[in-house]
Design a binder for these strands. Sequence first.
DNA 1: CTGTTAGCGCCTTCAT
DNA 2: ATGAAGGCGCTAACAG
Lengths: 341, 341
Amino acid sequence: MDFMANEKSKTEHAITIKEVARLAGVSSATISRYLNGKMNRMSKETADKIEKIIQDTGFVANATARQLSTHISQLVAVVAADIDDYFSTEFFKGASSVLEQNGLTAILFDSNSDKQRELTNLKIINHQVFDGLIIQPLINNYPELRGLIRKELRTIILDRDLHTNDWITVETNNKAVSQKTAAYFLRQRFIKCVVISEAVAGTSTREDRLAGIRSIYPESQLIEIDNSRPFMKENEKKVLDIVKADRVAKHKTLFFFLKERLLLAFFPTFLHHNLLSAPDVAITAFSDTTIVEGLLPASKMIKQNPFLMGATAAEILSNQLKNNATEFNTKKNIVISAKLR
Amino acid sequence: MDFMANEKSKTEHAITIKEVARLAGVSSATISRYLNGKMNRMSKETADKIEKIIQDTGFVANATARQLSTHISQLVAVVAADIDDYFSTEFFKGASSVLEQNGLTAILFDSNSDKQRELTNLKIINHQVFDGLIIQPLINNYPELRGLIRKELRTIILDRDLHTNDWITVETNNKAVSQKTAAYFLRQRFIKCVVISEAVAGTSTREDRLAGIRSIYPESQLIEIDNSRPFMKENEKKVLDIVKADRVAKHKTLFFFLKERLLLAFFPTFLHHNLLSAPDVAITAFSDTTIVEGLLPASKMIKQNPFLMGATAAEILSNQLKNNATEFNTKKNIVISAKLR
DNA sequence: CTGTTAGCGCCTTCAT
DNA sequence: ATGAAGGCGCTAACAG
């Protein structure tokens, strides 16, 4: 009994390069060369011998030690604002696929829509284990964020505009596409516009979208949803009151959702009050998934391209990491256009 | 000009503990003690001096070096089958929150519903940088998965049943809750049941769910959706044909979706054919988000608790990591019940 | 209270 | 084609 406990407590140290060397009857330098693919620096026989030993022992090189020695990890941190959003997971998938093609590994951090958590994430990322960073930041001011990311870390900003040239940014044409969409509906004689969004102030994407809409509908009403509490009852009433009033005034009204999730939350209201195919009510939204397409096949929606955005960011980062010192990027601000469909 | 290039090419090595020691006029051991909170092992003055230097220089300890020395990273890898699924992101959030409370950091890997990718992820995770692993595996057989995870790595399996006692498992009562749900609808005189799912074979969750349903509806028809191609036209027809036939036969029919996303895909079909409030058609589904609640307020749905599942897995793992050698877990298979609501 | 020293596991230059 | 040896940045005895 006692001796079993002893067996267990003897921590199982994984096999090292040194041990492999001993078994193969060579020096650890040779094993290292083998691991790094420098086959021309050794005879075929030793290479074969080493391969066999590694197979037999199931040896896996310790990435930590390698990294301490080389100062490179091939790891890229990707920080998403909230992985519950399709946009976030999708841009990660785009980034991940491109990084993989370049021999890099993407690792996802979730800020959980929480600045505190974002901070924690950045702290960890600063501990010099990552070669690069792609971040969709919650923090919306440049100096603050700048202070949280070590200078040496290659960084790309995604989906947010920090108004800086310090980092390359990949974003959507939020303002332009919102404007275009609003103009489209105005041409259809929807002369009123109600915007439904989470808190706008402090989030550049929402600010830009609202600005685009207001350049067409200066008077557009804004309904801001407070995510922190159950919101449907009161807001449902707001919407219905607006519709009723506009019908009395014989106005056609556009409901413009800045986020798909909000449209989904309101969908039942529109459905049960027969507003979906009403000629005097239109609905549009920033909508990235295919769910809404099915529910509202006739409505025009704004589709971003998060996958491409992530892939683009990853492409740039990969290049930076390759051409180490050199910086060829002249464009600091890359725009991936959203489409109205 | 030239000299600027030189300035740049001189790689900016981050400041080290040694440099901080020099500046503070103490040895690096003292800095190390400071970093590890061993304040009682030094005078207040040195501590203050060190703090100031660290502030001024913005020094951040290199986690890689620390890890090489201590063999612990405080990092836990969480591997999700597909982060596009709410279930996956939610269990991650649960795990993440508990791990954080225990001083650990959760890092998310996405297998992207792709076994090849899962394999890549596991390879990276095997390189000895993580203290623990929580995985929702794609690979469904024990020996294969066993071969891909190093023996020394503390591992918890989530959401899948590998029929092994080697790892602790946290899962849903898939079979039981499916059975209960089916029984509920049978009592309502829905004597036919159509199951709609992605490919069932090879995924324990789906197998268990189908088994539960078939224990009540042995004859239940299964419509398997092939995700790889656009599927709605033909499948829509299947559903409508079934409804028509059942109406002729005066059967009430239950449509049982094994995944929320599938229900959403079919929702428009049901909606546009007035099947949502038809007395002879019922719809139920495994549905974790709140989207469906709004769409079908009257329908009973099965709600899992992915957040709690993740939190539970993290709790167990945290304990294992603390009580290093000791293993107190007698229960190898923890079930977090889904509810019919 | 603080310094010295020897690793941790791998990489890399310099010899041979 | 291979080995010896020093170093990456930090930790952890052991001294004093």
